[in-house]
């Protein structure tokens, strides 16, 4: 065990007019994760610290936050791998509700707009909907998204224009647009082709850097642009 220093951007809407930094020190193993540190702070130093977490194993996407200036999942970063004091901030571009908890309603509203579910062309087949390995491979990368918001909140286009549908929603649209079993491409491509759709992407590549699942987000966006330009998937 050794002492690990944190500084956390705190904000309590009932008390603070603007966010402020607070420093903490907790005993941790070097192989502990940043999330363990935050829970140690919440558990033994300051119970008012508010954060989201659920599975704590990089699958649910609840604990995306800025760790030393980069969008990361707190459950996937070991304390020994980051410089101290470990600076923790809420994701940028979303309204902060309290401390590290941000309002993701707009984010999920955009997610819902791309109809992130299979749209059938006709009646359901008796058994499963068959697909070749190649057809499945076509959209494999974008199936990995866990909707943590790390890509969208690392995107300067989104910071500047919160109406931009954002990389996460485009990734979700890509996942169905390039699925051979899906019949809702026109509808999704129409949304992608709007002013606040894919054309807002300036290929900054921050989303690729931020994605904790290693999705090549910018490539997915480019493929959607290409589908629009060529008029075919």
């Amino acid at each position: 065990m050794r002492e690990v220093a944190f500084k956390i951007l705190r904000f309590d809407p009932e008390k603070d007019s603007k966010p402020h930094w607070e420093s903490y020190r907790v005993e941790l193993e070097p192989t502990d994760r940043v999330l363990d540190g935050l829970e140690a702070i919440k558990g033994s130093v300051d119970g008012s610290l508010s954060l989201r977490r659920s599975c704590a194993h990089g699958v649910c996407g609840s604990d995306a936050m800025l760790i030393n200036g980069r969008n990361r999942l707190a459950c996937k970063v070991l304390v020994k791998n980051v410089k101290q004091p470990i600076a923790i901030e809420p994701m940028r571009g979303f309204k902060v509700i309290k401390d590290l908890i941000v309002d993701m309603e707009g984010f999920f509203s955009k997610y819902r707009q791309v109809s992130p579910y299979l749209i059938e062309a006709g009646p359901a087949p008796e058994k499963e909907r068959l697909q070749s390995p190649e057809e499945r491979e076509r959209f494999d990368d974008t199936t990995k998204c866990i909707l943590c918001g790390a890509c969208t909140t690392s995107c300067p286009s989104f910071w500047a224009d919160p109406d931009y549908i954002g990389p996460a929603a485009i990734v979700q649209a890509h996942r169905f647009i390039f699925d051979s079993r899906d019949a809702g491409k026109e509808k999704r491509l129409k949304i992608m082709n709007e002013k606040e759709g894919v054309w807002r992407c300036r290929t900054v590549f921050n989303c690729v850097e931020a994605c904790p699942r290693g999705i090549n987000v910018t490539r997915a966006i480019a493929e959607v642009k290409q589908a629009l330009v060529r008029g075919k998937v």
Binding site: G106, S109, K110, R112, Q113, V114, S115, P162, D163, Y164, I165, K187, I191, E194, K195, E196, G197
Partner: peptide, 8 residues
Amino acid sequence: LRRGGVSM
């Protein structure tokens, strides 16, 4: 659904 300038 219309929000954020993108319609569905």
